[in-house]
C-alpha cells in the first residue's frame, strides 16, 4: 500500500471516506456512509456529525451496492468545470439511486441513455478517472443490474 500511494499512477478516492476498493485492481468497490446512533439517519461519506440531528455518535457503514433508480435524467451538454468523463463529450445518465441502507445517492449512470427507467434495479460499479498525466481517481457510478422494482 505504501508503494502504491506514492507511485505516480496511484489511484486516490474521488472524495476521502466516500469510496473504497475491495481489491487491488479496483474491480469491486464499496460506497461508504455514516449512521447516526441517535436518530438512525444515514448519510453519504464519512461524517463526524449527523446532518439530521447534529449528534456525534456516528458509526461508519457500507451503503450497499444494489439499489433502485428513484429518478434520473440525461445530461446532454458537457458539464461546466473540470469534468473528467469521456472527451469528446458523450451524453450520460445521472440518477438518484435508493439504497437499502435508507439513503438516496446522486450518481452518474453507466449505460445506454435511452434505456433508463424509474424503478430499474441498478448496481454500484467502479469508475476510474484520469486527470492530466499522473492523477488517477477512483470514482463510482451505477449500472443496470437487470430487472425493475416497479
Amino acid at each position: 500500500m505504501q508503494a502504491e500511494s506514492t507511485a505516480a499512477s496511484a489511484v486516490a478516492p474521488i472524495n476521502d471516506g466516500m469510496v473504497r476498493s475491495l481489491d487491488p485492481a479496483h474491480g469491486q468497490i464499496e460506497l461508504l456512509g455514516s449512521r447516526c446512533a441517535t436518530c438512525g439517519e444515514v448519510s453519504l461519506g464519512t461524517n463526524a456529525v449527523c446532518l439530521n440531528c447534529g449528534g456525534d455518535n456516528i458509526e461508519s457503514i457500507a451503503l450497499g451496492s444494489e439499489g433502485t433508480l428513484w429518478t434520473f435524467t440525461v445530461v446532454r451538454h458537457r458539464p461546466p468545470g473540470n469534468y473528467l468523463g469521456p472527451d469528446p463529450f458523450e451524453p450520460f445518465g445521472v440518477g438518484l439511486v435508493e439504497l437499502p441502507s435508507g439513503l438516496r445517492v446522486m450518481t452518474p449512470l453507466d449505460g445506454d441513455i435511452s434505456t433508463f427507467r424509474i424503478g430499474d434495479k441498478v448496481r454500484l460499479a467502479p469508475w476510474l478517472l484520469r486527470e492530466g498525466e499522473d492523477r488517477r481517481w477512483l470514482a463510482f457510478r451505477f449500472t443496470a443490474a437487470g430487472g425493475s422494482a416497479a
Binding site: 429518478t71 434520473f72 435524467t73 473528467l84 440518477g95 424509474i118 481517481w137
Partner: peptide
C-alpha cells in the same frame, strides 16, 4: 459544488431540476 462532484460530471444545475420533473411525471 465540491471538486469531486465536478470531476464526476455532477455539476450540471439543470440535471437536478430535471430529475425532479422526471419523478413528478412518474
Amino acid at each position: 459544488y465540491s471538486p469531486w462532484q465536478i470531476r464526476m460530471g455532477m455539476s450540471m444545475n439543470p440535471a437536478y431540476w430535471s430529475m425532479r420533473a422526471m419523478r413528478h411525471m412518474h
